[in-house]
């Protein structure tokens, strides 16, 4: 469990970092919190010739209000997100999701950018980003670009990042008044990656569901939006019949469910349904409590 030899660089700017990436011809890896990458190195499953440590680049670590959005630097740790008053009050879904990630030791080091770039199918953040309609800002040799979360996670453990691009910022909208949220998951133990998880957002106006978002994680190779369930909810009055129907849509939404010794595909789909049902009830209660 020792990594094969590699070179190490700790650039001071994003430009220097992208230059290093470009020079290494796809053979370099960015190092953020190391919570996913270091085990891969130790098991010799990743063998980069160069590690480019993002830890010395100033100003990738922030949470701030910017243009009506919450802007989060890629190197912001999960603990910083968890402790951010801005996030807790203006986008509590992100706050709640953060507390489901691993354990405090992992959140102390693991970064927001690392979780997005790692794109683990069972991770909370990609699903939350998709549900919130977050935007990811990437810096590359040809300058900066923005990608919608919905287009950022094409397949498991891969992203829309080009080999010499760096994720610099995640921008999430603030919670709309009168909306409720929920993030629930089933894991074997507290802090484990989810066997199944569901992110739910519900807007309620005059007793009717005016907007709905349902995104599953842990059940499929990438975050799954339950569009049929969302559509079916619109205009309904929040309550069991509508939620049960949406839960049934969630069970059917997964075309390629994951399966492993801890949970079969059938069980995962079942759990997705249970969580969506419970999540909708929780989100509805919050929406009603907040408006």
């Amino acid at each position: 469990m020792k990594p094969p030899p590699f070179a190490y660089a700790a650039p001071r700017s994003v430009a220097d970092a992208t230059a290093l990436l470009r020079a290494s011809d796809g053979d370099a890896k960015l190092l953020a919190g190391g919570q996913s990458l270091l085990p891969l190195l130790a098991m010799r499953l990743a063998r980069p010739s160069l590690l480019v440590d993002l830890g010395r680049i100033a100003d990738l670590d922030y949470v701030r209000e910017d243009d009506g959005m919450i802007a989060i630097g890629a190197m912001t740790t999960k603990t910083a997100v968890e402790r951010s008053a801005l996030i807790r009050t203006r986008q509590p879904l992100l706050h709640d999701a953060t507390r489901l990630i691993g354990h405090p030791q992992i959140r102390n080091r693991g970064t927001v950018g690392g979780s997005m770039a790692q794109a683990d199918p069972a991770a909370e953040y990609p699903a939350v980003a998709v549900a919130l309609g977050a935007t990811l800002r990437l810096a590359g040799e040809r300058g900066e670009r923005s990608v919608d979360a919905a287009a950022f996670f094409p397949s498991p453990f891969t992203t829309a990042l080009e080999p010499s691009e760096i994720l610099t910022e995640i921008r999430v909208p603030m919670r709309a008044a009168g909306s409720g949220w929920s993030v629930l998951e089933i894991a074997r133990r507290h802090g484990d990656f989810a066997l199944a998880g569901a992110v739910v957002m519900l807007g309620i106006e005059s007793g009717r569901i005016a907007s709905a978002r349902i995104v599953l994680f842990g059940v499929a190779p990438v975050p799954v939006r339950v569009s049929a369930g969302e559509a079916a909810l619109l205009g309904e009055s929040p309550g069991r019949p509508a939620f049960e129907h949406a839960a049934a849509c969630a069970r059917d939404a997964v075309s390629e469910p994951l399966s492993d010794p801890h949970a079969s595909a059938a069980y995962r789909c079942h759990l997705a349904g249970v969580l969506v049902g419970r999540g909708l009830a929780e989100a509805a209660a919050r929406a009603e409590g907040s408006s």
């Binding site: 133990r189 507290h190 802090g191 484990d192 010794p261």
Partner: peptide
């Protein structure tokens, strides 16, 4: 230990 599950303080 991601797959061989030991009980933790929460369990």
């Amino acid at each position: 230990f991601a797959d061989y599950l030991l009980p933790t303080i929460s369990d």
